[in-house]
Design a protein around this nucleic acid. Structure first.
Lengths: 210, 210
DNA sequence: CATCTAATTAGAAATCAATCTAATTAGATA
DNA sequence: TATCTAATTAGATTGATTTCTAATTAGATG
């Protein structure tokens, strides 16, 4: 995972001394002694901070005689500043867009079209913060929406009814109706008040939708 | 200074558990117990992390009965992700704006006007990432630009021609012309191929420009 | 009102981080 | 080679941070 890289980057920016260093370097490269002077800290402190900034890809350095000049790596800064946004974007409908991009790459026309269609339905039925606006009345769209919702549940795990209700409520207030639909369409089965995800082969499939 | 706010924001993102929380919230709001479950940590740990994320303006929450749902604050995320870039941008021409503000505070009309004029010239001749678009042909503007560039050099230090070239290249490709101009306008002097900054009293002054 | 659940607080343990002083290394140069 | 300066390493100190358990608070509900 590139989680580490991302955390390293943000950690590097999460210290006032380092931010001040960067503000100084924004005016042009400078060497350690000068930085230490401007900031009122000792040279070892600068060495310490520069190691972190370098590790995060925020600065690079060039040696000139005995003196090492530190440079802001602006391109990296710009790119990495976006990093968290990209991660969240991918995590988001992520499963959807991921599927779409993947199918497209594989040149798999049929699946790409399906993924595109799903993506479209999901985007139109969910608000930007993940709420289901309304339960689709068209069966085809309804199933797309349900399949999307059910993805947040884990295979093999047993859920109490209360848990399922809570889970569904993150999307929509009418958890009772939706919970019932989950069972009717074979996304889940219920036994003694305990719910569990069915294997995907049992879910309502694209074939049903024609 | 808003340095604090910025550091708080980056610190909040500088922890793997918190990034994972955000990735989950990107799929839609969720409550503490569920987060604790998905991440395999205890509820107090979630409380702790949520406090940091809230303080940084990255999430907000809504209560529903006993359950508190956490929401990603996407607009804030986007805005604050740019923050460091803005700070560096301001720090850059920054010395200019600082001078201007300072002169204004001192109610020093003449200097404030000069600083404002310099600031304007610099903003119009440099790109946002610090490149000189072109060498001004108007002598007055040219000197403002040179004085700005030369600020990154240190008084008393001796530079080899190669060093000066490298330094100038951070602003503009035509280092030869600019290096020559530096000498012609008394910003630097040259002896045996070694360059050094002249004292400021020798630089082309505002008086010359009338 | 008794009880349930979710969340928070308090407090402790362990780890990590920032900074300093003192000692050392590594180039450059007289 | 002796010496200078810049940078780094080592090691100590102090302070923050993460995470846990146990206890507590605060709504909701039978």
């Amino acid at each position: 995972m590139q989680l580490d890289k991302l955390v390293t980057f943000y950690k590097a920016l999460g210290d006032p001394t380092r931010v001040r260093i960067l503000a100084i370097l924004a005016n042009g490269p400078l060497h350690g002694q000068a930085l230490a002077g401007k900031l009122g800290v000792t040279p070892p402190t600068i060495t310490h901070h520069m190691a972190k900034l370098r590790e995060a890809g925020i600065v690079y350095e060039r040696r000139d005689k005995n003196t090492i000049y530190f440079y802001l790596h602006e391109a990296n800064m710009k790119r990495q500043s976006q990093a968290i946004l990209n991660v969240l974007e991918r995590a988001k409908v992520g499963s959807e867009e991921g599927l779409f991009a993947q199918a497209e790459e594989n040149n798999d026309q049929r699946r790409a079209q399906m993924a595109a269609e799903h993506l479209h339905v999901i985007k139109s039925f969910f608000t930007p913060d993940g709420k289901l606006k309304q339960i689709p009345s068209q069966r085809k769209k309804k199933l797309i929406v349900f399949e999307y919702m059910v993805r947040g549940l884990k295979h093999g795990r047993k859920y109490k009814e209360q848990e399922i209700n809570d889970y569904i409520r993150q999307f929509h207030e009418d958890y009772a109706t939706i919970r019932r639909e989950f069972v009717m369409n074979h996304y889940m089965y219920r036994e003694d008040g305990i719910y569990e995800l069915n294997p995907e082969e049992m879910w309502a499939k694209a074939e049903d939708l024609r």
